[in-house]
Amino acid sequence: MPHNGTVHSNAADVIYDSAGNKLLRGVPYYVLPLFSGSGGGLTLSRTTIDSCPLDVTQEPFDLSKGVPFTITPNVFDEDYVREAYPVTIEADVTDPCRGSNIMKVTTSDNGTKGFKSATIGGESNKPESCFQLVEADMMPGLRSYQIQLCPFKCGTNTSTSLNCYNVGLVANDVGKKFLATTEVIYPVVLTNSFVKPASQSSTSSL
């Protein structure tokens, strides 16, 4: 599961959105797959009707953007988000579970055969909520990024591992796609959500 060289990182580089603008802290962005025909953006949904916290999943239809997420640097108080810096990723929606909207990776009983899946309900600057973005050179002329979990970069980490882990999509037994740590590269682009209202009271998947 550690990253395998198909993506690269440079801490000096600023992350850019799909319009070529610098990625701003605290601004909601849709997280969309780079390649069309592979489904829509990231969203939140329940494994069962009353389950909490909500899982981070993919919209099944290409035209569905999902819900917006904010990306906030953990270490430096900067306006821009930089590559390979530890960040907190937070869903910009109302959580019906009334918990934290911060994304974390955990072992969830959602049918993904033991993969560590992403849910919300995390805490900022904790190992299980410690992510970074690194550039994935997959399509010329369009910046795409790989989300990685890097537990050692945040909080008090008792592990001696200095590995980062790719975060991509894993399907359960009925074909629903969950965000989880996986060896598969999942390049994404980030689209500013201000073309529509930045906050939504609910999601179509709940």
Rank of each mutant, 00 (worst) to 15 (best):
S9I: 07
I71A: 05
Y80A: 15
L63H: 10
L42N: 00
G39K: 09
P127R: 06
V81Y: 02
V14F: 10
D95S: 14
E135L: 09
T119D: 09
R82V: 13
P60L: 11
G39D: 07
N4Y: 00
C150E: 01
A12Q: 15
N74Q: 15
A171K: 03
S204T: 10
F35R: 13
K65G: 05
T48S: 14
L149K: 01
L142M: 15
K177S: 11
V93W: 00
Y186T: 01
L133P: 03
S108V: 12
V87I: 13
G26V: 01
V188H: 02
N166Q: 11
T88Y: 07
N101M: 07
D92S: 13
A136C: 15
F131Q: 02
V134W: 02
P2N: 12
Y16R: 00
T156M: 11
L190C: 06
P68M: 06
L32Q: 09
S45M: 10
S38E: 12
N192E: 04
Y186Q: 06
N101A: 14
N157G: 05
N172I: 09
A19E: 15
D50K: 12
F115M: 13
T106K: 07
E123F: 07
L32W: 03
C164F: 00
V81D: 03
L206F: 06
A198P: 02
K177H: 09
V195S: 05
P60I: 14
E90H: 00
C150R: 02
R98N: 09
F115H: 11
P28I: 08
L23I: 13
D17F: 04
A12P: 01
T191P: 02
K126E: 12
G141M: 01
M139W: 11
E135G: 15
T119F: 02
S202D: 13
A171G: 12
L32S: 10
G122Q: 00
I185P: 05
C130T: 03
A198F: 01
L142A: 13
G20C: 04
S205D: 12
V67F: 01
L23S: 10
G40C: 10
L206K: 00
L24E: 02
Q200D: 15
V67K: 02
P151A: 07
V105F: 04
G20T: 01
E135C: 06
A118N: 00
N101Q: 09
D17T: 03
F131V: 08
S161V: 05
T43V: 10
S199M: 15
A171M: 04
V134P: 00
T88G: 07
L44A: 03
A84D: 14
C150N: 02
L179P: 00
F194V: 08
P197I: 03
E83K: 05
E123D: 13
S159G: 11
P86A: 04
D109L: 12
T106G: 09
R46C: 15
P96M: 08
L190I: 05
E83L: 10
Q146H: 08
L54T: 07
D109F: 15
G66I: 10
P53V: 06
F152W: 11
Y30V: 08
G37K: 00
N21S: 10
G141C: 05
L206M: 12
T88K: 04
G175S: 01
T160F: 08
L179G: 00
P53Q: 09
P140Q: 12
Q146R: 13
Y29L: 07
I71P: 01
